[in-house]
Design a protein around this nucleic acid. Structure first.
Length: 127
RNA sequence: GUUCGGGUUCGGGUGGUCGCUGCGGCGGGGGCUUGCGCCCUGCGCCGUAGAGGAAAGUCCGGACAUCACAAGGCAACGCGCCUCGCGAAAGCGGGGGGGCGACGGGUCAAUCCCGCCGCAACGGAAAGCGCCACAGAAAACAAACCGCCCGGAUCUCCCGGGUAAGGGUGAAAUGGUGGGGUAAGAGCCCACCGCCCCGAAGGCAACAACGGGGGCACGGCAAGCCCCGCGUGAUGCAAGACAAACAGGGGGAAGGUCGCCUGCCUGCCCACACUCCCCCGGGUACUAGUUGCACCCCGCUCUGCGCGGGGCACGCGAAAGCGUGAGAAAAAUGACCACACAGUCCGAAAGGACGGACAGAAUCCGGCUUACAGAACCCGAACGGCG
RNA sequence: GUCCGGAUCGUCUAGAGGCCUAGGACUCUCGCCUUUCACGCGGGCAACACGGGUUCGAAUCCCGUUCCGGAUG
């Protein structure tokens, strides 16, 4: 799937919305949180929007850039299974520092499966 | 050839598939227009460009911008041997001078001299103030604890005087060695060395061969205050410029006062409400607008960052010349695969495994500092081999 | 991004070149007191972020590094 500028979350309000309202799922390297797109958003739910959080405790700037790019690549390859019309926030944990791409991919796909299961059981949260 | 030290350059390569951001073209969509057409775009395709030597730390210096305009003084801050070169400046480099430290040698010995190597923010301590703990008799300007010598005495012990050679303390103690001299001593006198002053060959200069004079005083710290010389207005692209909408109201300040080059003062200028401050209220398009801002200037122009000319920087090259010129904005420059090339580990070998140093542009440029695997080249030193 | 400031026991701090082998309070710990606990009394452990330089001598002065914090739309 595509991952252009319009597919990214930008404002602090949007990140706070996902953290307050969304369902989260913790893996070895990531914390995945998703929420339905808010009705106040003027844009249609034609696509999902993603935000990646890489804090300073992950490492120096070069390492943070590399990890963020690997997560972007994961989303580009596997992000479609999260469905459309959602806000998605992915937080990199400290253990992810220096993890290579196959390990990240394995953890991410298992996290996606668990997240889909959780989504089925949980009722749709009211906005 | 090996090792060590210093310097310069480079600091991962080639190809493929998929992807991201900027720009351009074509198409799509939207808006305006009767229309030609113009504008916008969070869309698609194609083309093209896309992290560093330190991009880092933010330690210096500039460009640029604003503070209405330019000026002087004080304060504050920075720099500080001489000379040459580069540079806008900061700074960098070459050479030299004196200084300090280690080593070796000279010498009876030394704080002295010579050689060699290394180091440094290296103006001034006889302009002034301050500090120099402990120890020591005494720590900065004069003094004398133990001693030594002379004289006296109530004669081991005390008193007066002379002395600064010896002892001990300290980071630092009133020039050093030898000789003369003396009651004992002392630059008291002499020789050599050192030091200070004057002159001076030489040197662009810092400096200084050498000569004369002086018995010799002037301890250290200025990365303590300070003095001398030179320099600096302040604030920083979140500087600033442009554009939309709206609605203003109330209170206060000072009459030579507010503001002003924003640490202080003077001077000058402007205003006398159109100033400044406070409070209440209103507006805010754009996913925080556009620009500054991504080589620059000029010309042509089919209006396309297209062409031409000139200039700047960098790279390649012997030269002529050729090539290149990131520009994001919750922030692109990536992921994977293959092949060679370095590197580490295991192994006798074949081979196998691991796996790319330090590190990510944010207005730009020049330096400084810090981090750094490895490669190439050059210079110097030591050791060894061959001729 | 730009511009500033700071670092001392586990915590909060004192310190302005020698009195510092760094003081105080809380904490911790040992003992005393008490039938026991608390309070109190006495003792102990425990720090100058790191690396250079100036100086006879540095927590203090200077330079660099590391870490932490603040202001600014």
């Amino acid at each position: 799937m595509q991952l252009q500028r319009r597919h990214t979350l930008k404002r602090a309000q949007e990140f706070a919305y996902v953290r307050n309202r969304g369902l989260s799922c913790v893996g070895r390297y990531f914390v995945l949180t998703t929420a339905p797109i808010p009705p106040t958003c003027a844009a249609g739910p034609a696509f999902s929007r993603f935000g990646i959080i890489v804090t300073k405790r992950v490492g120096c700037a070069v390492l943070r850039n590399t990890m963020r790019r690997r997560v972007r690549e994961l989303l580009r390859a596997h992000g479609e299974s999260l469905g459309k019309g959602r806000y998605v926030v992915i937080l990199l944990r400290q253990a992810a520092a220096g993890a290579d791409f196959p390990a990240l991919r394995e953890d991410f796909s298992s996290l996606l499966a668990r997240h889909a299961k959780q989504e089925q059981h949980a009722p749709q949260t009211s906005c």
